[in-house]
Design a protein around this nucleic acid. Structure first.
Lengths: 150, 150
DNA sequence: AAAAAAAACCACTAAAAACCACTTTTTCCC
DNA sequence: GGGAAAAAGTGGTTTTTAGTGGTTTTTTTT
């Protein structure tokens, strides 16, 4: 199973194409043969999520099964399913980010790709560094987190 | 079974015709041979729902069977059943949206078609982006959703 | 029977995807 | 440490396919 770590600075060209760093490309090749699903993040941070296809196929049914008479569930379904774009890396190891997703996450030229274990996050570089500066550690923790010893 | 994903920007022409994107068209072809049912959405968002006919035939009896001494149930029946329009894609892969539904969902020229697993949602582009900006993640979640790990 | 509206058909334009070539950076060997 | 070779990243070009708009034919209504 894939285990993405670390952050990579990458550039998107004028057509919305972006070259996946070689090291990440290798991991993607063995995790899913280069078949990925790109979608929107549902929390307040407007970044994109990159799932290897097998990981996506674990998550998708869970989201589809949510009771959609509930408003929060509908929102998650619209964001995650409604923005999901399956794709494959092109011959040069690049992906084309759909315009909708580009504007959702405010992606311009300079981006950051952040390893998050089973998935990756794709941020506008500006927003990533702004988040680093702004985010604080004074929110409530779930019990599993309270018990951690780093 | 069909599995609609992603969002597509589409234009409706002066005659109320709209071209289904090629990828969606393929999925519709195999799910229902292009036979779909278009109807109104029942929640607060004024969008339309697009069901492949077999999916519709699973949903329809459930709605018809609701105890309609209840006001919420009557509302659902009137909206969903009372606006349902069965149709087929034309030779160029387009559908003609009935005027009633067009005005219900405030559809003008620019539209968004949103994949939602077993069905699709059809929005006015303006309303879709407004919803994206306005919707927040502070509604109450069902327990299945609280337990999710994206 | 004529006129209007709707549906099917056909042709043209535009956009997306695949392909190819060049430049820059990194790594390995001398 | 320097040079060469290979790999990675970048940009442009071509080809194919999807979308758009107009035209004709058929059906329905008055």
């Amino acid at each position: 199973m894939s285990n993405f770590l670390g952050s990579h600075a990458i550039n998107m060209d004028a057509k919305g194409r972006l070259a996946i760093p070689a090291k990440v490309r290798e991991e993607l090749a063995q995790a899913c043969g280069g078949r990925i699903v790109l979608t929107a993040n549902a929390d307040e941070e407007r970044c994109l999520l990159v799932y290897p296809e097998p990981e996506w196929e674990i998550l998708r049914p869970k989201i589809e099964a949510l009771p959609n008479m509930n408003r929060a569930a509908r929102r998650l379904q619209r964001l995650i399913l409604g923005n999901a774009a399956p794709m494959e890396l092109d011959g040069a190891g690049r992906i084309l980010v759909p315009p909708t997703l580009r504007s959702y996450a405010h992606l311009e030229k300079k981006l950051m790709l952040i390893g998050q274990g089973k998935k990756l996050e794709l941020w506008s570089e500006e927003r990533w560094f702004a988040w680093l500066d702004e985010s604080t550690d004074d929110d409530d923790m779930p019990p599993e987190m309270e018990a951690l010893s780093l």
